[in-house]
Amino acid sequence: MTSKVARKIAQSVLSREQAEGAGARVRRSIGTRSLRNLDPFLMLDEFSVQAPAGFPDHPHRGFQTVTYMLEGEFWHEDFKGHKGRIGPGDLQWMSAGKGIMHSEIPATNNKAHGLQLWVNLSAKDKLSEPNYQEYPATNIKAVSPEEGIDIKVIAGESYGVQSPVMTMTPTMYIDISLKKGKKVEQIIPKSFRGFVYTLSGTAMFGGDKHKAEAHHTLVLSDNGGTYLPVESLSDDCRFVVIAGEPINEPIIQYGPFVMNTEQEIYQAFADYEQGKNGFEGAPGWHSSIRDLWS
């Protein structure tokens, strides 16, 4: 009989606030010098945006963006006619595929606060058709194993509850809130690479009981562990556990384009500028929400 092996914390990175987009502020961890990427993850931002700041019209190719709202509301719109509004607890899982132009800005005067994760796509999926999955908070699966433990299953599985979200790159994304003294053991597939991002409170994470407060990215060890133990030290403990199957392919990133070779990056820029191969209609496109606060 094989005994359980707990994941440990291999690295801790504090997410420091920085400017991004048009007047927005983000706390970035993955995607910085301290943690360039964590295959299959390219970037993680905890964003805090208030009008008129935002992320106006911009392109993407070759990966997925996952936006999870914590408070406030965002408008989003793309050049293919897709437009919507997401609020607290809502999820948007977008695959940019071969090309998307979109815009994201606050929908009200209140602060829009959330997480945006960039998930890489394998070479075979990088030029696929763009698609969206949107789930309002009411459709996000949840489980409370006991009083003082509240879990939202954004992707993957937790305590027997499975998310309906389809992930082109196998990914789990679990939002956990704990009262002081509560413990959880989150199952993580042995082959997955992952991390914890702390939103509030204090807890001890991993088999080594690593103590961490808010705004830290805790990289999980690749020790063949199959679960992550956590014990809360405060009543306001909240964090996300994110892990995925490594793609193990070259990552060449230039701004909003992520491909496998430099030549593919040059081609992405050429396609974007010339409005072809997925970027038809991009040149001259102007979102209707871009100037909402001007």
Rank of each mutant, 00 (worst) to 15 (best):
R61Q: 06
R193A: 14
D175C: 03
T198G: 04
E231S: 15
M172H: 04
D235L: 04
L292M: 06
V13L: 06
A268G: 05
E129D: 15
L44S: 00
V241Q: 01
F205H: 13
G21M: 06
S221I: 08
G275T: 09
P106Y: 11
V143A: 03
L115A: 03
E104Q: 12
I187Q: 13
V230N: 06
G275A: 06
Q18N: 02
K124L: 11
L218F: 02
Q50I: 14
G278A: 08
V153Q: 05
K141G: 03
N37H: 15
D57F: 09
K98G: 00
T65A: 13
A10G: 02
P130L: 10
E157D: 08
G275W: 12
G225E: 02
N131M: 14
R16C: 04
V119P: 01
Y254W: 14
H286N: 13
E185K: 15
G181T: 11
P40T: 06
T108C: 10
F279P: 06
F195M: 06
R85C: 11
K276S: 12
Y272E: 07
T217A: 14
V26Q: 05
V165Y: 02
G160Y: 02
R33N: 13
V49L: 09
P59G: 10
K141W: 02
R85I: 04
K180D: 06
E213Q: 08
F63S: 07
V66S: 00
A22F: 13
G207Y: 04
V196Q: 03
I242E: 01
G21Y: 10
N131D: 14
Q186A: 07
I176K: 00
K190S: 10
R193I: 10
Y272A: 07
S221G: 08
N120Q: 09
P229N: 06
H76S: 11
P130V: 11
K180I: 00
E245V: 10
A214P: 01
N139H: 13
T65V: 13
V165R: 14
N248L: 12
T217M: 04
D236W: 09
F192Y: 15
M1D: 12
P145G: 05
T217S: 15
M259K: 07
E245R: 09
I251W: 10
E273G: 09
R85S: 09
M168G: 00
D236K: 11
Y272R: 06
E46H: 15
T171W: 07
P56L: 08
G99F: 03
Q162V: 13
Q50A: 14
V66I: 13
N110L: 10
I140P: 04
Q18E: 15
M259I: 08
F55M: 12
S158H: 01
D125C: 02
L228G: 05
L117K: 01
G225T: 05
L35I: 09
A243R: 08
E245I: 05
R25M: 14
A214H: 02
T202R: 14
A137P: 05
R16W: 02
